[in-house]
Computed example of a mutant assay.
Amino acid sequence: MIKKNIAGFDLSHTKSNQLKRILDCRLNQASNSPYCHTAYWDANHFNLENATLFKNATISQQKEILRLTSQGILEEAYFIEKAGIGYMAKMVLLSETTEERMLYSLFSADETSHLAKIIPFLENIPIDTNAPFLQLLADVVESEDKSVILFVLQVVLEGWGLSHYRSLAKECCYPDLSVVFHSFLEDESRHHATGVTLFQQQSLNLSSQRAILEILTSFLEMIRVGPQRVVNAVEMVLGDLSRSQKIKLLEELDTETHSNTRLSILRSLISKQGSVFVSELEERGIFRGYPAHLCVF
């Protein structure tokens, strides 16, 4: 079996100080880490201010919950940008014109810069890629169907990334990190716009349509189940929660509103270039968030 490596999730970081110095010089950034043992987003960002378990926790427990949720956001961004480097490099090889190849070469450099800016804020370099979203991302990156990867990764996910990073930048409590996420927006907008342009030039056959539909269904199902990362962080700090405690926590996190807001954004992104998919997804009820009791497994 061929090992999947376009996303590069299994690539380790070099131990060569000389190579690191060369990279830092090329990136024009210092190698020292600004990481501090703190939360980069507050309780309001995660809707935790209304959660009884959080409010009744000690101050130190609250800080730890917020630290874990903040690191979770950064770890996900780390893997997304890491996969982006490989994806853009792959698109260099799939390019059909010189200009397209030039653009994707520049885009790969953008993703490299993004990853380098995120790493210093991580407590540790993450190695766990078992998250369902990251597994889905790795599978899509490996696809050989250009229309599928253009639509899913650049039209939908890059478009989603714009909204996501804008929110992270706006609500971040740590000015240096807020500036980092703000700096991604222009690049993400350019990547998304290029994906839209190139996707419009593709001939979408039935096989590609089915592949896109199934990938979107899997991705949107992950959004429908609400802020599972927040629930996991609370449980890691406070100990095992009963099913009823998890349901109450999700209700207090307003999980349906949380999911529906995100699903609405994604529906808009999909409908602009893939209206053919929207009716089928709506028939499946994919654009509606689950109530709290269906988000606990």
Results as ranks from 00 to 15, higher is better:
M1I: 08
S12V: 11
K15I: 14
N17K: 01
Q18W: 15
Q18K: 15
Q29P: 13
H37L: 00
T38N: 02
T38W: 12
A43K: 07
A43C: 13
L48W: 12
L48H: 01
A51I: 15
K63N: 08
R67D: 01
L68D: 00
S70L: 03
K82G: 04
K82W: 04
Y87L: 15
F107Y: 04
E111R: 08
A116H: 06
I119S: 10
P126W: 03
N130W: 14
F133G: 10
V140T: 01
V141C: 10
E142H: 11
S143E: 05
D145C: 13
I149C: 12
L150P: 08
V152E: 10
V155Q: 10
V155L: 08
S163E: 14
A169M: 14
C173L: 02
F181K: 04
R190P: 11
S203Y: 09
L204Y: 15
N205T: 03
Q209E: 10
I212K: 14
T217K: 15
T217N: 15
L220H: 13
I223M: 14
V225E: 12
M236K: 00
V237I: 09
L238R: 00
G239P: 06
G239V: 00
Q245I: 05
K246N: 10
E251P: 02
S275F: 07
V276A: 13
F277L: 09
F277Q: 04
E283P: 04
L294V: 06
F297L: 15
F297W: 13
